[in-house]
């Protein structure tokens, strides 16, 4: 594959999945004629027809519920939710039906449904359009929660999510839709979607992050290097189940850990990760696990967005705090 944007890489992932398996169906509001709000499904209905790339009314509970019924009857639906905040009307169907049918049927029913959600801020939108609600779903057993940060993961994590017989909440950081990189034709050595990936080796501090914050953390690591600090940046990629092994291995080496995400820190993924790291690495830690995230407020209007979202300076401040402990 050539160099692709994240949006194109996901589009290509959907296209290949539709080609490979007649059971795959793409569905959501405006995924067909319009090609999706972010053009992620652009051209798919034209090439695969309106029976496989299905435009739905604006009805998120109905979209996810229909996908569950389709999955029970042999399909592998991929639903698009237009914006993170729009998933709440479907929350009950996801949490009470999608996540639980397998367990409550004693393993007799499989639910191979992917719910794609553009996530997070950074594009000048407002609340409902900029939220990071991954913790709600990570807290729900029965769902796998995946968040890509770059085009190659956008493509291959999605392909693996569609192949998976479990329901997957698949987050796409919307501010990264236009970022570009090479996408390999074969997943080869790419870690599977249950695994985190070390994107930058370093010996002083482990920085754990995902989605839209990965690029920020990589840039922070470059800046820190100029100050003589070596940051190891790990892209978590799958938020549930969490790859605690890769995290633990790194923190036992560095002795310091900073978790970075856009979501509010209170009861966010960082809280779970902080507790897990403390349990697994207590005698290796030189400082408490520190969290960098959104404030415990509703997502602010666009003009305050830069103050709300963690940036390079806030990541570096946390690194300094860790060293100062």
């Amino acid at each position: 594959m050539p160099v692709l944007t994240l949006s194109q890489a996901i589009n290509t992932g959907l296209r290949r999945a539709l080609e490979d398996d007649p059971a795959v169906i793409v569905m959501g509001q405006d995924v067909g004629g319009l090609g999706g709000v972010f053009r992620v499904t652009d051209g798919l209905q034209k090439d695969f027809g309106a029976d496989r790339v299905i435009d739905t009314p604006l009805a998120e509970a109905g979209i996810v519920g229909t996908a569950i019924g389709l999955a029970l009857r042999g399909y592998r639906p991929v639903c698009e939710i237009q914006f993170d905040g729009f998933v709440y009307p479907a929350f009950n169907q996801i949490v009470s039906q999608l996540a639980k049918l397998r367990a409550r049927s004693g393993g007799r029913l499989a639910l191979p449904v992917v719910v794609r959600i553009p996530v997070g801020g950074g594009i000048g939108a407002v609340e409902h359009h900029s939220e990071s609600n991954e913790a709600y779903f990570a807290h729900t057993a029965g769902l796998r929660v995946v968040c890509c940060s770059n085009p190659q993961d956008g493509h291959w994590l999605l392909r693996q999510a569609i192949d998976c017989d479990d329901p997957v909440i698949f987050y796409e950081p919307k501010r990264r839709y236009w970022s570009k990189s090479d996408v390999p034709e074969d997943p080869g050595d790419l870690p599977r979607f249950e695994h985190a990936q070390v994107l930058r080796d370093g010996g002083d501090v482990t920085v754990l992050t995902y989605g839209g914050m990965v690029d920020t953390c990589l840039r922070a690591a470059e800046a820190a290097e100029e100050e003589g600090h070596s940051l190891e940046v790990i892209d978590l990629r799958t938020l549930s189940p969490l790859d605690i092994e890769t995290i633990t291995e790194s923190v036992r080496e560095t002795g310091r850990c900073v978790v970075v995400h856009e979501a509010p820190t209170f009861a966010g993924l960082g809280a779970e990760i902080g507790a897990a790291v403390t349990e697994h690495c207590f005698y290796h830690l030189e400082a408490p696990v520190l969290r960098v995230g959104g404030y415990n407020t509703p997502y602010p209007p666009a003009k305050f967005e830069d103050q709300y979202l963690p940036d390079l300076d806030r990541v570096l401040d946390a690194v300094d705090q860790s060293f100062a402990w």
Binding site: G74, N92, S96
Partner: peptide
């Protein structure tokens, strides 16, 4: 279904299938 109103959307999927 323990959720009141949980079933009808699923039937749309089964009927669509």
């Amino acid at each position: 279904n323990g959720i009141v109103g949980g079933g009808p959307p699923l039937i749309c999927g089964a009927a669509l299938a």
